[in-house]
């Protein structure tokens, strides 16, 4: 996993949402660490628990959703027990957030300049004039042309890609230690997506900022991240370096997900699809939640929940069929390519 100084440690976190139709187990026993300067991806489909896990880490869960167990340590401090006032300061100063729709992060009635400057005034104690000057610099850094003029424009006057770059500027304004980006490019066109991903990579690399990138799109993860967590039905089912997980997935769900992506290269044949749909999250787990859709499931999968076990250096998988790899054998598939 991450050998050196983790910024974030998520330890056995479960999140539940009580509803009229029963309790939704949105995240179950989620456990991972994020290293300094590392780019970690969390991939999953809707309902997999990826977004709710991020919200839980940020202490942004809306009641009735709540963390039922586990600890979230940010540089050793437990976020779950932090006083709400301290949480605000922590979120503002040490963490940056980027969401799918930049319009939800930007106030439509305020000029861009004010919105960037405000963050600098509150969290870095700058005067309005200093903050405005710094805001212009920040807009330049996120490659917004004509930055001075843009300061006095409103969000609706910018394109989607530009708006998301403003959100990145705001997220990076306080030089945070960690950025959580939830589907940051999903609402953007492919050309804007490429620019935003490269910008985010350049900026966070320069500042050694850790990034958690949440997306449904494995291609974005393959492009941006170093390590990946695959989530299904609220659980982490696979973890490893992006290279290894994609060239040699060890969980049948990851494998099936990869197979079902239409490609830009190679022969076009019938797409292998995953039958069925993700499970009802209000039910207690009887066995592996993927078993009903899994092509290799056997009796044990339907009765015994597979634990997330280490199967190799930096690799974990929650599958009865993913055997631990002896440490003296290297992964052949990776070398063969």
């Amino acid at each position: 996993m991450c050998a050196i100084e983790p910024v974030l440690q998520v330890q056995g976190v479960s999140i539940e949402i009580p509803t009229r139709h029963g309790t939704v187990h949105a995240a179950r026993d989620v456990d991972f660490a994020l290293g300094r300067g590392e780019r970690l991806g969390i991939v999953g489909e809707s309902g997999s628990g990826k977004t709710i896990t991020a919200l839980g880490i940020m202490r942004l869960l809306l009641p009735p959703a709540h963390v039922t167990s586990g600890r979230i340590l940010f540089e050793g401090r437990d976020v779950t027990t932090m006083h709400p006032k301290d949480v605000n300061r922590w979120r503002g100063n040490e963490v940056g957030m980027i969401f799918q729709d930049p319009l939800t992060s930007l106030n439509p009635f305020l000029r861009i300049g004010i919105q960037v400057a405000e963050v600098l005034e509150i969290h870095r104690g700058l005067s309005r004039a200093q903050a405005m000057a710094e805001a212009e610099q920040l807009l330049r850094r996120v490659q917004i042309s004509d930055a001075r003029r843009r300061l006095s424009e409103y969000p609706h006057q910018l394109s989607g890609g530009m708006r998301q770059r403003v959100v990145i500027a705001i997220a990076m304004a306080t030089r945070p230690k960690m950025i959580i980006a939830d589907e940051p490019t999903t609402a953007l066109d492919v050309t804007a997506q490429a620019n935003v991903l490269d910008l985010l990579r350049d900026l966070t690399e320069a500042e050694r900022t850790s990034v958690v990138l949440i997306t449904h799109d494995l291609s974005v993860i393959a492009d941006f991240c170093e390590r990946v967590l695959v989530m299904y039905a609220g659980r982490i089912v696979e973890e490893g370096s992006v290279d290894e997980v994609i060239s040699e997935p060890r969980h049948p769900y990851t494998q099936a997900l990869l197979n079902s992506i239409p490609r830009l290269q190679g022969a076009v044949g019938r797409l292998p699809s995953i039958p069925g749909a993700p499970p009802d999250l209000t039910r207690e787990l009887q066995g592996c939640p993927f078993a009903p859709r899994c092509p290799v499931a056997y009796d044990r999968c339907r009765t015994e929940v597979p634990e997330l076990l280490e199967i190799g250096p930096g690799r974990r998988a929650a599958c009865h069929l993913a055997q631990p790899i002896p440490s003296n054998i290297t992964l052949e598939g990776d070398l063969a390519e």
């Binding site: 050309t191 997506q193 490429a194 799109d217 291609s219 974005v220 393959a222 941006f224 290279d243 830009l264």
Partner: peptide, 14 residues
């Protein structure tokens, strides 16, 4: 440009 912007589902190819 469009084809060259699309991320591919393979870190090596990217």
């Amino acid at each position: 440009a469009l084809l060259g912007s699309v991320p591919l589902p393979s870190p090596k190819a990217n």
